[in-house]
């Protein structure tokens, strides 16, 4: 690096790194884990922590797509419904020749991606507000699912799903493995490709992005497609872990995915953030949810606690927003 460049692009100091939100969120996770294992024996056991990360993988997968959408200045409220579509739909497409279940999984993921594409088309070309478009999509899917599956749970057995739900290659749960691979790919896409830069451009200022030559409609469709795809993956993983899918199985993951994104320091207003923050965000979220369950809070209190958490996080990240 020549001296001119050193002035233009000074090295990041290690101390600044510690102030970054992903690192901060990670440190909070560590602190909560240490604190909780003192209070509650057994919490810090390797098996339990691994279980938490396994639960985190479900939220974290859903949060991948949500991170892309939120950075692009939108929000995807159909994540929960798409997860349900995937978890309920995969058993329905079980075919005789498809012994491994891979074909069914592929069809399911394709369907989930198509739903995401439809969301993106609505936002990009019908100019529907992202919230309205995805909420309408969620309502539509909910109706469709009840028609298709009724109220009963549908169980699914296939080698692939079984592997997803219970295999532990090298001691690492398969779900966590899938999550890790998906995380690396999405971090690369977000920070090391022109596509990622366009997502940031779109979220920070879509008008300026258009006038700078960014293909805004295509980028919009792409982020919602990614969200559909990762929601579909989440659904398959849930199906593997649960052994059965039912209407409503994906509902809790809509808000967890948003909360994980916000916890990880991605601005809900779009334009800035990273999936690197959503990873510890997802783990923190399942940890907190676990602790709330431990203290035996009633559903009412749990809901209040969750809402207050979102509000508190918003107050923190909102301070950043006003500094803009």
């Amino acid at each position: 690096m020549n001296p001119g460049e050193a002035v233009r692009f000074p090295k990041v100091r290690p101390r600044a790194l510690f102030a970054s939100r992903p690192v901060l969120t990670f440190l909070i996770v560590v602190a909560v884990w240490i604190g909780a294992s003192f209070v509650k024996p057994g919490f810090g056991a390797f098996g339990h922590l691994r279980y938490l990360v396994e639960l985190g993988a479900v939220v974290g997968l859903a949060a991948i797509g949500q991170t892309f959408v939120v950075i692009a200045g939108g929000i995807d409220l159909s994540v929960g419904a798409i997860i349900t579509v995937s978890a309920v739909g995969a058993p329905l497409v079980a075919l005789a020749f498809d012994e491994s279940g891979a074909f069914a999984a592929l069809i399911t993921l394709a369907a989930a991606t198509v739903i995401g594409v439809l969301n993106g088309l609505g936002v990009a070309f019908l100019r529907a507000h992202p919230m309205i478009m995805t909420l309408a999509m969620a309502t539509f899917l909910q109706g469709l699912l009840i028609l298709l599956a009724g109220g009963s749970a549908i169980s699914a057995q296939s080698p692939l799903l079984e592997w997803l739900g219970s295999a532990r290659p090298g001691g690492v749960p398969a779900g966590v493995l899938v999550w890790a691979i998906a995380s690396v790919l999405s971090l690369l896409a977000l920070h090391a490709t022109p596509f990622g830069a366009r997502v940031f451009a779109l979220g920070a200022n879509s008008l300026a992005a258009t006038l700078s030559g960014v293909n805004v409609p295509a980028t919009t469709v792409a982020v919602y497609a990614i969200s559909g795809l990762t929601a579909g993956m989440t659904g398959l993983l849930l199906l593997g872990m649960n052994g059965q899918g039912y209407v409503g199985i994906g509902d809790p993951y809509l808000l967890s995915s948003i909360a994980a994104v916000v916890l990880g320091g991605t601005s809900i207003l779009g334009g800035s953030g990273t999936y690197a923050g959503s990873i510890p965000g997802a783990v923190l979220l399942v940890t907190i949810t676990g602790l709330i369950t431990v203290v035996n809070a009633s559903p009412g209190w749990r809901s209040i606690l969750f809402g207050s958490l979102i509000l508190a996080l918003l107050l923190i990240s909102g301070r950043e927003a006003r500094r803009r």
């Binding site: 929000i75 919230m131 808000l255 948003i258 916000v262 809900i268 207003l269 009633s298 559903p299 009412g300 209190w301 749990r302 809901s303 209040i304 606690l305 969750f306 809402g307 207050s308 979102i310 509000l311 918003l314 107050l315 909102g318 927003a321 006003r322």
Partner: peptide, 21 residues
């Protein structure tokens, strides 16, 4: 100066929780 969407989303949990209580 916070986004209404997220504030009211949080409020929906808090209010819904209060209704359950």
């Amino acid at each position: 100066g916070l986004p209404a969407i997220v504030v009211t989303l949080a409020a929906s949990f808090i209010v819904g929780g209060a209704a359950l209580l």
